[in-house]
Design a protein around this nucleic acid. Structure first.
Lengths: 130, 130
DNA sequence: AAAAAAGTGTGGAAAAATCCACACTTCGTC
DNA sequence: GACGAAGTGTGGATTTTTCCACACTTTTTT
């Protein structure tokens, strides 16, 4: 499944948040102005590339992603790891922790996430805020 | 400074690892075949966009990035956070920790990284393996 | 100094991405 | 059934990306 161009990604971002949607609805949710016809051209390409599918309901087609956001996320994260960290996901995560601005609260949350990484069922202490 | 296309990114990836390099050297380090003239066209664009600069030495131009890898990395990471996590770097990191395959050893390393996040001078216990 | 080797400059072809105009179709409603 | 509103299909125009051919320049070698 071919790579997403910037314009295609904008549309997928909308559909991953909410779908199915018809063209006019997608257009209304895009953060920048684009014509209805231009948007439908992007959708046509996304359809050809297999990134979305559509179903007619009434007189309009409703579009939805064929793959969940998660799947594209992993693919793009892998690309980032490839380019900047020789493909190592661990180094990517480490690089982010070191370079992104994180509050003390964020650090605490991260510690918790890492700690429970291999035991998702781990219960949080009762009475905790988050 | 304009966005990097996929082809441009391939070249930048080489230059971030090692620079300055002349076109033939870059070409030799690219993972896929590309003609010398094609590569130089990409370099021309990168030059116009301001992503690389060059200096003549002997009869060849040597190219180097104008910005360190780190700066592009942060930009691309931010984009990823925008698309999939509403712009939250913390959620991006959390998402990676949850979705990437990490060994127990990796988890230990991560714990260490997070723990020393706000105190990079923190000394590791002597005699430690890593 | 001539030839060969190594590089460069540049115009533009080919394909992909982005955008739009315009004709046609479908649905509701008077 | 005729009309208007909402939607679709589609053929490009335009720009960007990717790639290459070819002529020219610079350096090295004989």
């Amino acid at each position: 499944m071919a790579r997403l161009t910037p314009g295609e990604l904008e549309v997928m971002q909308v559909l991953w948040k909410e779908s199915p949607l018809k063209p006019a609805e997608i257009e209304a949710r895009l953060p920048r102005p684009i014509g209805n016809a231009a948007l439908r051209s992007v959708l046509r390409v996304l359809l050809n590339k297999g990134h979305v599918k559509r179903a007619k309901q009434g007189k309009a087609y409703f579009y939805r992603p064929t793959q969940p956001a998660h799947s594209s996320f992993r693919q793009m994260a892998q690309k980032l790891a490839d380019v900047f960290f020789g493909g190592s996901s661990l180094d990517l995560i480490a690089g982010l922790i070191k370079s992104e601005k994180l509050s003390d609260e964020d650090i605490r949350k991260l510690q918790d996430i890492v700690r429970t990484r291999n035991d998702p069922a781990e219960a949080h202490p009762p009475g905790e805020k988050s």
